[in-house]
Nucleic acid binder design. Structure first.
Lengths: 117, 117
DNA sequence: CATCATACCTTGCCGTGAAAGGTATGGCAA
DNA sequence: TTGCCATACCTTTCACGGCAAGGTATGATG
């Protein structure tokens, strides 16, 4: 085990961004609102979270950007690269395993639990 | 800023500790291992995480401690107070809502999705 | 013309988790 | 005996991620 899963709770904003962009190319401001709406206001990530994530993701080659002007408004659209797809699968897998693990703790004595009479 | 809703991802170590202690009183070292075992090694929180959590929880009146000596070994057992039960329910609810929200983003277009016909 | 909504971005703070180190004792093996 | 590992407690230190807040610019609206 070369690398322990340190920071086990992080990367959720990244995960959400990647997942949304997978459906169609989107721009930052749009993502902020999409996350709010799709989560029924349960998750409200500000622009101060989204933009840095977007830039980091692009730097890593997980996203590619192209600038468009719509109605005189300049937008930076991001779309998923092949690297981004892998990154998404990776993060989604981690998240899934994490929540299952937590669930198995919350869910009481081990499923195949040893009942020491 | 005690009950701040920000930092939406935090409090999981706390949640796990409270949940485990609910079943029976436990001591720090034991909790570290219990979390590892119950999560099938998916979550490995060190003592540097657990002890501070324990102390904070006791300070807040969510846990009560009593020292025992077993086999010449001194252990500090923690058990859940009424306040702790409430805290647990609270955290568990938050966690549940959070994971559902994330799931509803990951799961694609809204469940009760508006099909703009 | 002023104000709001859109759209982008950065700086700086702070909480949290994690590593690492420190103390002490009991058990076991060399 | 000595030394080392496991048990058991605890603290200090650090890094990083999320977030508020602030800053720029432009189009629409009244």
């Amino acid at each position: 085990m070369a690398e322990n899963n340190s920071n086990f709770m992080s990367g959720v904003p990244e995960l959400l961004v990647l997942r949304l962009v997978r459906e169609k190319e989107m721009y930052g401001y749009e993502l902020v609102q999409a996350i709010r709406e799709r989560s029924n206001d349960a998750i409200a990530l500000g622009e101060g979270v989204i933009y840095p994530v977007l830039h980091a993701l692009e730097r890593d080659g997980a996203l590619s950007s192209n600038r468009k002007t719509v109605n005189g408004r300049s937008r930076v659209y991001y779309s998923l690269t092949a690297t981004g797809v892998r990154r998404l699968d990776d993060l989604a897998g981690n998240w899934s395993r994490l929540t299952e693990a937590i669930q198995s703790v919350l869910g009481g004595p081990a499923i195949g639990g040893v009942s020491h009479a």
